[in-house]
Structure formats: structure tokens, C-alpha cells
């Protein structure tokens, strides 16, 4: 009984606690995800941002327990979906969750449809697996999803193959697949990077609409802060496998705390300025298999202190719901 109460009282669809996913490679241990925590409420959108290689995709795949093996392994933490810890579930139980309670739109939609099966076949698959429907109803559902994703003439489209469709169409199909079983949580891993700008905006609007209608929790992975500003409620900034700052979109945009967040915002070209120079962050992101002790951002940080190179900063709360891990905000140890 108690756990049920907790489920209701916390109101979180997803809680990720101290998640650690490492790759055990010949060159050493790559700590792709190293103690990531965040939570997500119904209807809420969390933006996960950070430079390439900081561990965004691996965080998402870890939630679904689909870390690329055999090198990759989840070595610690908890992933709690509606009060259930996914990391202690059997593989069979996980399969009933994938595509049903949690769906994901993969990073590259252009290649995420199988070239040798029809669109209809691929869209029907999750419906068939997760819902006990008759053949006819499965096809009805598929057509309904195509209509939901604003794809014209679904009757014709279901018999087509991926190569007969444009990139934007394919992306909608992938979105339709993800939404076909009324998931609780939708993970969108840079869903628009391979699309051109107008189609990108259309697609995001579509996703947002469906999300609001179904009250979905959503994780939007991106390195485009413009997208974050448009669709997210909260933002988690990731650097070298860790979340360095997390807070409401407004807080993060107007009162960024962590020097890395500031740098990211600084690298965003502003409309009003004449774009004579594009800001970039000095230096390279670190190699994850040989992280320096202390804060991983220290070598690139403009406000670096002695302690930053020795010890990782604890989390400090700046304001309700706005946290950062940086020595500038931590009570200095004696």
C-alpha cells in the first residue's frame, strides 16, 4: 500500500537516480554516464543538452536497458518508471515496456526504418506486440497513427517502402511508431538533426501537440538550445557523463550558474547581433576513458580554482528546482 501512495504522492513518471553506464573497452573504462539523476513529471518536457559525446544517447538507451553490448553495461543506479525499478526487471518484462510504456525516437531517422519491410508492416509491429487487437483493428490503428502524424493518404503509404518516402515523412513514421501504444514516456534523441529547418519546426510542433494531448512525459535530447527554448519545460545540461546543471528553462536561460552552461549559451548565435563571429567554447571535451580528477570542465573553465582540479564539486541548490555542481556555488570545505 505504501508504495502505491508513494507513486501517487511523488507524481513523477520517471526518476533516474545516480545512473552509471560504463563501456569496458581495450583502452580503458569509458564512463559514458557517470552518476546521472533527474526526474520527470506527467506532461513535462526535459531537455537534455550537451556537446557531442557527453553521454546523452547512452543515458536514454540506459533507461530502456538497450546499452550497446557487450562492452557497455549499466553498473549502478536506479531507473524508476511509475514506481517500478526498471533495472531489476527481467529482459522479458523489459520487452513489454519498450515501445509501450517508454518509446524512443532514435537519433538518425533517415536510417532507422528497415529498408526491406513496408511502412505498414513496421508500424503494425509494436501494435501487434503490445495490444491484443484483431488484424483489421491493427491496420485501423496504423492508419490512425499516420493521420495523427499528418501523413496524407495513409492507405497508400502503408504499402510503400522507406526509400519511397522523403526524410520528413520517414521521421513522421518513426514518430508514429513511437506514439502508437500510448506511452507514458517519450524519449526523442535529436529527432530533427537530419531535417531541414522548416520541416524541423513542423515536426517539433506536431510532437508537442501530441504530447500535450496525451499528457506525455518527454525527454528531448538536443544540442540545439533554440529547440530547448521552444519545447522544453526544464533543462539538464550534461558534460562528460554528468549533469552539471539542471533547472527550469527560464532559470537556465536567464540565470545560468555553471560556467559550462554559460559557455553553451554564449556559443548560441543571437539574432539581434550581427553574426560576425560564431562563439565557440575553447578547448575540446575530455576523453571519457581518461578523465582528470576533480571537475571534468576545469581545463576549459574560465573561472577555474585550485580545488576544481582536485575534487568533484557537490551539488548546490541555487533556487527551488535549480541545481548545479560547481565549486563557485558550493560551501567551500575548510
Amino acid at each position: 500500500m505504501k508504495s502505491v501512495e508513494q507513486k501517487i504522492s511523488s507524481g513523477n513518471v520517471l526518476e533516474v537516480k545516480d545512473l552509471k553506464t560504463y563501456f569496458f573497452t581495450g583502452r580503458g573504462v569509458v564512463k559514458a554516464v557517470d552518476g546521472v539523476s533527474f526526474e520527470l513529471k506527467e506532461g513535462e518536457t526535459l531537455g537534455l543538452v550537451g556537446e557531442s559525446g557527453c553521454g546523452k544517447t547512452i543515458t536514454c538507451l540506459s533507461i530502456l536497458r538497450l546499452v550497446p553490448g557487450p562492452a557497455g553495461r549499466i553498473v549502478g543506479g536506479e531507473v524508476i518508471l511509475d514506481g517500478d525499478d526498471l533495472l531489476s526487471k527481467s529482459e522479458k518484462a523489459m520487452r513489454r515496456i519498450r515501445g509501450k510504456k517508454v518509446s524512443m525516437i532514435l537519433q538518425d531517422p533517415m536510417v532507422s526504418l528497415n529498408p526491406v519491410f513496408t511502412i505498414g508492416n513496421q508500424m503494425a509491429e509494436p501494435v501487434r506486440i503490445h495490444q491484443k487487437l484483431s488484424r483489421r483493428l491493427v491496420w485501423e490503428k496504423v492508419k490512425e497513427m499516420l493521420r495523427l502524424m499528418s501523413i496524407p493518404s495513409p492507405e497508400i503509404r502503408i504499402r510503400e517502402y522507406p526509400h519511397q518516402m522523403s526524410g520528413g515523412m520517414r521521421q513522421r513514421v518513426v514518430g508514429g511508431i513511437a506514439l502508437s501504444c500510448q506511452p507514458r514516456l517519450l524519449i526523442a534523441d535529436e529527432p530533427t538533426t537530419s531535417l531541414d529547418v522548416t520541416i524541423q519546426a513542423q515536426y517539433l510542433r506536431l510532437l508537442k501537440e501530441v504530447q500535450q494531448k496525451e499528457n506525455l512525459a518527454m525527454i528531448m535530447v538536443t544540442h540545439d538550445l533554440g529547440i530547448v527554448a521552444k519545447v522544453c519545460d526544464r533543462v539538464a545540461v550534461m558534460y562528460a557523463g554528468k549533469i552539471v546543471e539542471c533547472g527550469d528553462v527560464r532559470e537556465i536561460f536567464y540565470r545560468p550558474a555553471h560556467p559550462y552552461t554559460k559557455a553553451l549559451l554564449g556559443s548560441l548565435p543571437k539574432m539581434e547581433e550581427r553574426q560576425e563571429k560564431l562563439y565557440t567554447i575553447e578547448g575540446q571535451p575530455p576523453e571519457l576513458h581518461a578523465l582528470p580528477p576533480g571537475c571534468s570542465f576545469a581545463p576549459r573553465c574560465p573561472d577555474v580554482q585550485e580545488i576544481c582540479k582536485q575534487e568533484y564539486p557537490p551539488q548546490s541548490i541555487i533556487k527551488d528546482g535549480h541545481c548545479t555542481s560547481c565549486w563557485l556555488f558550493a560551501a567551500r570545505k575548510a
Binding site: 530502456l64 538497450l66 519498450r98 515501445g99 518509446s103 524512443m104 532514435l106 509491429e125 509494436p126
Partner: peptide
């Protein structure tokens, strides 16, 4: 290694 294999797994395909 292909992305569509990942998608199949994400869909919950055995």
C-alpha cells in the same frame, strides 16, 4: 549494427 535494428529493439520486438 544498423539503426533499424536498434529501432526494432526499442519497439519491444523479441
Amino acid at each position: 549494427d544498423a539503426e533499424y535494428i536498434k529501432l526494432a529493439r526499442v519497439k519491444g520486438v523479441p
